[in-house]
């Protein structure tokens, strides 16, 4: 049969045509390499918003920043019947290094976002279609958030110190561990540099323009270079107070200076400030510290007593 002679040949052609190119891209998310070599305006703006996702990571988790520091400080307790390790390991010990994330996340989460900020700062330099004022605003925002992440690292590490990674290659040798004072000095420099970038945006005439990227609702009122700078200064005041408590005598004055440039106002509402935001929108996180039926998370009773006293006085 003649048909049988061309059928195999045809099939062979189909096969070769179909599999000429075996490359399959990542269908679920963009490629990091693209962002590093050819960043686009929308990507750069999205990564800026993402810094707020990164800096929120693990804050409210049951084994996160607030909960674990609360347990160590005997301010709060996690009595989850399904995971007794919050008592047996966190309160009694020994801590199991193999268990997922009892403390290690307090180190890993901020560094993940520090890397995000470093990627963003590198991309801003080369991204097209973003004007100079916008770039300065992005730099000022990014460095402020990065300084905040360093602060979260060093307050849990204290005298053990921390590193300041600059290499964007995750396989590069890890950054050296510096002393606590060096890290605080770096945070101070970052905040000042961020403030300078925000000022530069203002100089370029965009001081009262909303940031080109979206901020979470927790930053309502702090979405321009001028207003965000007041948050930057508030952080600086906090950093200076830490430094002062470690023996820096001039830092108390610096703290007052920073405070005066911050949003903090003794006559305004105590609610003023920025917040971590949560929502039930798809892809978002809910606040895991919210435990409506008081199943597991409890605070030390003195908390309520103190709060009532403060409210009365």
């Amino acid at each position: 049969m003649n048909a049988t002679r061309w059928l195999p040949a045809c099939l062979g052609l189909v096969v070769l045509a179909a599999c000429k190119d075996l490359d399959v891209p990542n269908l679920n998310s963009p490629d990091l390499g693209d962002f590093q070599s050819n960043p686009t305006r929308s990507q750069v703006l999205s990564v800026a918003s993402g810094l707020l996702i990164g800096t929120r990571a693990g804050i409210a988790a049951q084994n996160g920043y607030v909960s674990l520091l609360g347990i160590l400080g005997r301010e709060s307790y996690n009595l989850d019947p399904a995971d007794p390790r919050f008592v047996s390991e966190m309160l009694v010990g020994p801590l199991d290094g193999g268990s997922p994330a009892f403390g290690g996340n307090l180190w890993a989460n901020p560094y993940r976002n520090i890397r995000n900020a470093n990627l963003e700062l590198a991309a801003v330099d080369k991204v097209p279609l973003v004007n100079d004022a916008e770039k300065e605003a992005i730099r000022g925002f990014t460095q402020t958030i990065q300084a905040f992440d360093y602060l979260k690292v060093i307050v849990t590490r204290d005298a053990n110190g921390a590193g300041i990674p600059t290499d964007l290659d995750p396989l590069a040798p890890p950054a050296a561990i510096l002393t606590r004072d060096s890290v605080f000095a770096h945070i101070t420099r970052m905040l000042d540099s961020a403030a300078a970038h925000l000022d530069s945006a203002t100089t370029l005439g965009a001081g009262d323009d909303p940031f080109p990227f979206n901020l979470s609702p927790g930053f309502t009122g702090f979405t321009t270079a001028v207003s965000f700078r007041t948050f930057n200064r508030a952080l600086m005041a906090r950093v200076q107070v830490y430094k002062g408590s470690f023996g820096c005598t001039t830092c108390w004055d610096s703290a007052l200076t920073a405070l005066s440039a911050s949003f903090i106002d003794t006559t305004a509402s105590l609610d003023d400030g920025v917040y971590y935001s949560y929502s039930t929108v798809s892809g978002d996180e809910t606040n895991a510290l919210f435990d409506p039926n008081a199943r597991a998370l409890v605070a030390h009773p003195s908390f309520e007593t103190d709060a009532q006293l403060q409210a009365r006085s």
Partner: peptide, 8 residues
């Protein structure tokens, strides 16, 4: 997302 705002 953070507070409903998407990010990368």
């Amino acid at each position: 997302k953070v507070g409903g705002v998407p990010g990368t």
